[in-house]
Simulated assay, not measured.
Amino acid sequence: MLAFLSIAMVVIISLSLGPRYIPVVTLIDIFRSGDGSSTASFIVLDSRLPRTLLGLICGAALGVAGALMQAVTRNPLADPGILGVNAGAAFSMTLAAGLFGVQAIDAYIWAAFAGAVVVSLLVFLLAGGNKPGSSAAASPIRLVLAGVAVSAVLAGIGSSITLINPQAFDVMRVWAVGSLAGRDMHVVAAIAPFIAAGLAVALLVAPSLNAISLGEDLARSVGANIALTYSLSVVAVTLLAGATTAAIGPIGFVGLMVPHAVRWLVGPDQRKIILLTLIAGPVLLLAADVLGRLILRPGELEAGIVSAFVGAPVLILLARRKQARGL
């Protein structure tokens, strides 16, 4: 109950606070009447509502993607970026902006998502995902090594293109920070189906992740299909982190910190971790977004910067607690 109250409160705060304060009574009138002619209605319906919805679905996606990666790799400090999702999205965006002059977010969101999917599949194949019968197929260590290697190569190539093309640099500079601002309902509608599918797959594999956390040998002895669990987890992380990164940029610490904190609260049961992360992730991301609006008002500090600034010390404190160190 407390979790649902927290998310309801942060949604109301997100719709109300900003350079201009919108009272709750006014919010009720706006949604009741549907009148978009007033200034307050324009602010709420065209600006704050899309970014609030993005905060909800992207926060949930990042949190669950982080929980999956931490469970699969059995590393409580693993991050969705390990699969090369961020690197693939960034590289594809660099090509779209630098070579084809893409500027509109509705256009480059598809390029970024395509890059995230392609690179994630490449990492999975390099890690042995094309050998489902092998005991070492797509193992956690192989996934990490392949992801780091591919990410490093793409980051180097992408940086070279960005530095020699000012147009690409301008687009990447805004996107790479990570922000919910400037997105409309078209972006929400574009990524929502992918995130919904990713969350469904994550909930499906959660029971198997509990068995894998005990070790692969014991997981096999209780009938868990390890290769299938790894494969479905990669699919879920690709859908969740890929769509989110394409829409709002590579926001860090949400996928890293939220599952870590939730695990400290509810224990190692992956089903409980994923369910609570669905709520805690949006709360953190929306709180960071609102705080960014208030710190430099009437200007704005991007949510990616705020989440990193707040998340780093909190994560350090959590990591130092013995109860939160292991899965």
Rank of each mutant, 00 (worst) to 15 (best):
G215S: 02
R320W: 11
T229K: 00
M172Y: 10
Q167V: 14
I30D: 06
G81A: 06
L125W: 12
F194M: 08
L15S: 02
E216W: 13
G147F: 06
S213N: 15
S38I: 00
L83G: 00
F42Q: 10
A192T: 14
I161D: 04
A227E: 12
L125D: 01
P259A: 07
P50A: 08
R220D: 04
G158D: 10
L77I: 12
L122V: 14
A261F: 13
R271M: 03
V150Q: 05
V72L: 15
L265H: 11
L126R: 00
D106P: 10
L180M: 13
S47V: 15
L77T: 11
Y108Q: 05
L163N: 08
T244K: 02
N86P: 10
R325C: 08
I251Q: 09
C58G: 05
V174H: 13
A67T: 10
S134H: 08
L240W: 03
F113T: 06
I43V: 15
A61L: 08
A65G: 15
L239R: 01
I212A: 00
A60R: 07
V266I: 15
V44I: 14
R183Q: 12
G304Q: 09
R48C: 02
L17S: 04
V144S: 07
G182E: 12
S159V: 01
L214F: 05
Q167N: 15
V85A: 01
Q70S: 13
V11L: 10
L214C: 05
F194C: 00
S41F: 11
S307V: 06
A206T: 09
L214M: 12
W110K: 06
G59M: 13
A176Y: 05
A149V: 14
A189Y: 13
A96R: 05
G299I: 01
G215F: 10
